[in-house]
């Protein structure tokens, strides 16, 4: 199949980018990234700079890849990262526009590669459990309600690819932050720091310059792991509670009971 590609080319973070048109030959069995690999081989043979795009596992589980294809983050297929998207999802003769994630908190480094360090800094602000717990504990050593374990796993499926930010009309990061708060908030191990975590992660999210949620739902539609907006609702509730209580109960003047 023959394709026309309009790809955002940008030399480095400081340069101004522009769309460049390429033609590509592809088989239906190729993944989208394999198709780009072939285009890049051609560019290298001609002595041109290959198109830079992020990728690592190519199995849809690492969260490294991702760009916008024809106005959709990770392309047209639901619950699919761009590495798991295959050319059979497109028609011979299609024109495809490839753009990097667009958010000021995700500056473009080169072509389709953006800097997602903002996500790392949000995690570093509180998206973890501070106490060392040693090796993996025995299963069922701590009783956890089945529904909570399932919900926690749903949130933990977030691979941090950034598609939620890319698809959000407001460039908000609330689906990501709520997933990273939510998977810990569902489990007993996440409780001691739950309120401090809510305040710290939201503060970092705001400091990174992400937009603010208006409940469109584009994030959950774009999410390759189908993380639902209900986690944003849970995050909102936790943040309000944390702000009201400061995350701590006031100790009585007598102090704790010895």
């Amino acid at each position: 199949m023959k394709l026309t590609l309009r790809i955002w080319r940008q030399k480095d973070a400081k340069s101004k980018g522009a769309f460049v048109t390429y033609t590509a030959e592809a088989d239906e069995e190729m993944s989208f990234l394999e198709m780009l690999d072939v285009v890049n081989e051609g560019l290298i043979q001609r002595g041109e700079e290959p198109i830079a795009f992020d990728h690592d596992c190519r199995e849809g589980i690492c969260g490294t890849c991702g760009f916008v294809i024809n106005g959709r983050a990770h392309g047209p297929r639901e619950r699919t990262t761009v590495c798991q998207l295959h050319m059979r999802s497109f028609q011979d003769g299609d024109t495809l526009t490839l753009e990097p994630w667009r958010a000021d908190a995700f500056p473009v480094l080169k072509d389709l590669v953006v800097d997602r360090g903002a996500f790392d800094r949000i995690i570093a602000a509180g998206g973890f459990i501070a106490s060392a717990i040693g090796g993996a504990p025995d299963a069922n050593a701590i009783p956890i309600r089945k529904e909570n374990a399932d919900l926690s796993m749903d949130a933990a499926a977030c691979i941090g690819c950034g598609a939620c930010v890319a698809a959000c009309p407001n460039a908000a990061a609330m689906l990501f932050v709520s997933a990273k708060m939510g998977h810990l908030a569902m489990l007993p191990q996440g409780q001691p720091e739950r309120m401090d975590r809510a305040r710290a992660m939201v503060a970092q999210m705001d400091a990174e310059g992400f937009g603010t949620c208006t409940n469109h739902g584009e994030c959950e539609a774009a999410c390759p792991k189908a993380i639902r907006m209900e986690f944003i609702g849970r995050m909102n509730a936790d943040y309000v509670k944390a702000s009201l209580t400061g995350g701590r109960r006031a100790a009585g003047s007598e102090g704790g009971s010895g």
Binding site: V68, G71, R72, A172, F210, G211, T214, E218, E220
Partner: peptide, 22 residues
């Protein structure tokens, strides 16, 4: 805040779940 969060917009953006109302 949201306007500032996306200085450079997309050439193409398709809506999936948002509504006319939203």
């Amino acid at each position: 805040t949201s306007r500032k969060a996306r200085g450079i917009g997309y050439r193409e953006q398709k809506w999936k779940e948002s509504t006319y109302a939203s």
